[in-house]
Structures are given as C-alpha cells and as structure tokens.
Amino acid sequence: MKTLPVLKIATIVVSLAFAGGVTAQTTESSAASAPSGSSESLGQHISDGTITTKAKAALMAAKDVKSTRIHVKTRRGTVWLTGSVPTSDEKSRAQEVVEGIDGVHQVKNRLKVRAAGTKE
C-alpha cells in the first residue's frame, strides 16, 4: 500500500500550507505593516509561518500579556507585532516573549498602547 505514505505527506504539506495561510493579518498603514511575502521561497514561507505560529502560541501562553489584539507577521525571520495592548509594560513584555523564539532575528514592535474600552 503505497498510497498511505503519499497520503501522509500530502496531509503534512496541506497542514503547513494552511498554517502559513493563517498568518495573514490586516494592515494598518504602510509604515507599520510588514512587507508582502511575494518574493519568498516556499521553504522561507514555511519557516516564517512556523515562527508566526510559535509567536502567537507564546503570546497566548504568557500570563502577563493580553494577546487578543496582537497581530503577528513574520518575514525572513523579522517579526512585526501590530495591534494594541492596554499598557506599555505589556508592549515591552510581548516583544520579550517573541524575541525568545528560535529563528527570530529581529522584532519590529508596532503595538499601540490603548486603554481597555477605547476603539482602535
């Protein structure tokens, strides 16, 4: 039965492609947003997708960061954090959390500090 290993490989490829596609985020302005990924190789896209997934998971696990309004985008090992947090301490802590992830070369922290209940 050669179809089972082929099916496993296809499932893995689709899963990785889906994980990479989940990284798409809304952009705020051209100065604050990450560059498009149109010139990435497939391997780089998968690696960046993995970093983005790890960053989101780490931010969700961090008890001292409210990550529900943090958007993460990765391009060539540089991670952009956009969105908003309630305090400047959380902004700094979010950057620290992401800097500790393997594969992250640089963090561009574009988070805005906004009190809870204010509109973005």
Score class of each variant (00 low, 15 high):
87 T>I: 09
88 S>G: 08
118 T>D: 07
93 R>T: 03
32 A>I: 10
24 A>C: 12
40 E>V: 06
19 A>Q: 02
110 R>M: 07
81 L>I: 03
120 E>M: 09
84 S>M: 11
48 D>A: 05
46 I>R: 01
36 S>Y: 05
3 T>M: 13
87 T>G: 13
97 V>Y: 01
29 S>G: 05
42 L>E: 08
120 E>L: 11
2 K>A: 12
101 I>D: 11
35 P>C: 09
91 K>W: 01
21 G>E: 08
17 A>C: 13
79 V>Y: 07
60 M>Y: 03
33 S>H: 05
37 G>S: 11
55 A>E: 09
3 T>P: 06
68 T>Q: 11
44 Q>S: 13
51 I>E: 02
118 T>V: 07
13 V>P: 01
118 T>K: 09
87 T>C: 10
63 K>Q: 07
117 G>S: 05
46 I>S: 12
120 E>P: 10
9 I>W: 09
76 R>S: 12
1 M>D: 04
24 A>R: 14
41 S>E: 03
88 S>L: 11
116 A>I: 11
110 R>C: 06
23 T>M: 12
11 T>S: 11
81 L>R: 08
65 V>F: 01
27 T>E: 13
53 T>F: 13
13 V>T: 10
115 A>N: 03
34 A>V: 07
89 D>P: 05
14 V>N: 00
91 K>N: 06
89 D>H: 08
58 A>P: 03
89 D>G: 10
21 G>D: 06
2 K>I: 13
37 G>P: 02
10 A>P: 04
44 Q>V: 10
65 V>P: 05
31 A>P: 00
38 S>W: 09
68 T>E: 09
3 T>Q: 15
77 G>M: 00
5 P>G: 01
45 H>L: 15
69 R>C: 05
110 R>G: 14
61 A>R: 05
60 M>T: 06
